[in-house]
Simulated scan of single mutants.
Amino acid sequence: MMKRKYLAVLVSALLVSNVANAVEIYNKDSNQLDLYGKVVGLNYISNNGAEHGDKSYARLGFKGATQMKGPLSGYGQWEYNLKTSTPESAPSGNATRLAFAGLRYADIGSFDYGRNFGVLYDVEAWTDVNPEFGGDSWAKTDNFMTGRANNLATFRTNDLFGMVRDLKVALQYQGKNEGDIKNKDRANATENGDGWGVSSSYDLGNGVSIAAAYAKSDRTDAQSADKNGQFADAWTTGVKFDANSLYLAAMYAETRNMTPYGNKQFANKTQNIELVAQYQFTNNLRPSISYVQSTGKSLNKVADTTTDANSFNGGQHALVKYVEVGTSYFFNKNMYTYIDYKINLLKKDNYTRLANVNTDNVLGLGLVYQF
């Protein structure tokens, strides 16, 4: 009975994941394995060619847990994304999203290593909840510890080692991820030096929670060649209300030498804000509205490759700025559809033209089967 209790606690706490449903495919001798996935038929409608057309994909993963001696447990998770909007002859673009393994000791905490979410995303996840658009003012995949990344060692404890109920703390170390210049296996924007991060959240009760996180990393030689400094860091704080069918969340963050922009450059500083409101109706309809903005400060020049006459001379500029309006409708727990409209507030100017930033609105239409 005690083993089953530990295993149940472990499975319910298997790190950050957007898994809404899972199919148990094995459960025997204190070992459990769940399979999950989804198929998304997705189309974008926009005047911007890069943002228009078929964006469909499929996703498959598993998560498992095993009870070992006494209160010690083990767990692992793997998740793979498959693009389905390209011809079979084209380069796949498929990628592993998550792949980590770890140990958990009763109420003390868990430790895992692999490809996982950075601790900065612990706060960002509260506003990254929209049907399609959102959660991208500053969090990016393989961008230090702002989103999913490689080489992450993470320790997490709930209830602060059993001493403070509903207080969660995470400590994280990220090893260096530097591109191989010869093989070009990692772009400058996805590199990082050694770094560390910490996050904490607390449930105040009555549906209200608060959170904060900080991370600091060395920059690689290729990144620090811009002479903006040897370090990149970011801090963020957030608050959410989730009760009585109403969901409200707000996030503020600042980054330094971390956010890529323009032509392979990093912003000296960004200030980022995300606001989200959603309501769950009893008829399975869930509308949402959000505001997302990232403002770059002390930006470097973005030059025209043909002439300097129309170059962006640096300074301050909005890197991301839009309003999202959308809604999801759930037929049941396995099938839902959604429509999401991104009202782009960026203006067409020298910066957006030279940096190839989309300034057009985008409408997303999706139909999802998940398990």
Rank of each mutant, 00 (worst) to 15 (best):
R4H: 14
R4D: 15
K5N: 09
V9K: 15
L10D: 11
S12P: 15
A13I: 03
V19I: 11
N21V: 10
A22M: 02
E24H: 02
Y26D: 02
Q32H: 11
Q32F: 05
L33N: 04
G37W: 04
V40Q: 13
G41A: 12
K63C: 00
G64K: 02
A65C: 05
Q67G: 14
Q67W: 00
M68S: 03
L72S: 04
S85M: 03
A90K: 07
S92Y: 00
T96P: 10
G114I: 07
R115K: 15
Y121C: 09
W126Y: 13
D128C: 09
V129K: 06
S137C: 15
W138T: 04
K140I: 05
D142K: 12
D142W: 06
F144A: 11
R148Q: 08
T154Q: 11
D159F: 02
L160F: 11
G162F: 10
Y173K: 08
G179H: 06
D180C: 13
I181A: 15
I181L: 11
N183M: 01
R186S: 02
A189V: 07
N192D: 06
D194Q: 06
S199A: 09
D203I: 10
G207D: 05
D221M: 01
A225H: 04
A225T: 11
F231N: 13
D233G: 01
W235E: 10
G238F: 04
G238P: 02
V239F: 01
L246K: 04
Y247C: 03
A250F: 07
M251T: 15
R256S: 11
N263F: 00
Q265R: 04
F266P: 05
T270F: 04
V276H: 01
Q280C: 01
N284A: 14
L285S: 01
P287W: 08
P287T: 14
S290D: 07
G296Q: 05
L299N: 01
N300V: 02
K301T: 14
V302C: 05
T306V: 10
T307A: 13
D308L: 10
N310E: 07
N313R: 10
H317D: 03
Y329R: 14
K333W: 07
K333D: 15
K333Y: 13
T337I: 14
L346P: 13
K348C: 02
T352Q: 03
L367G: 06
F371R: 08
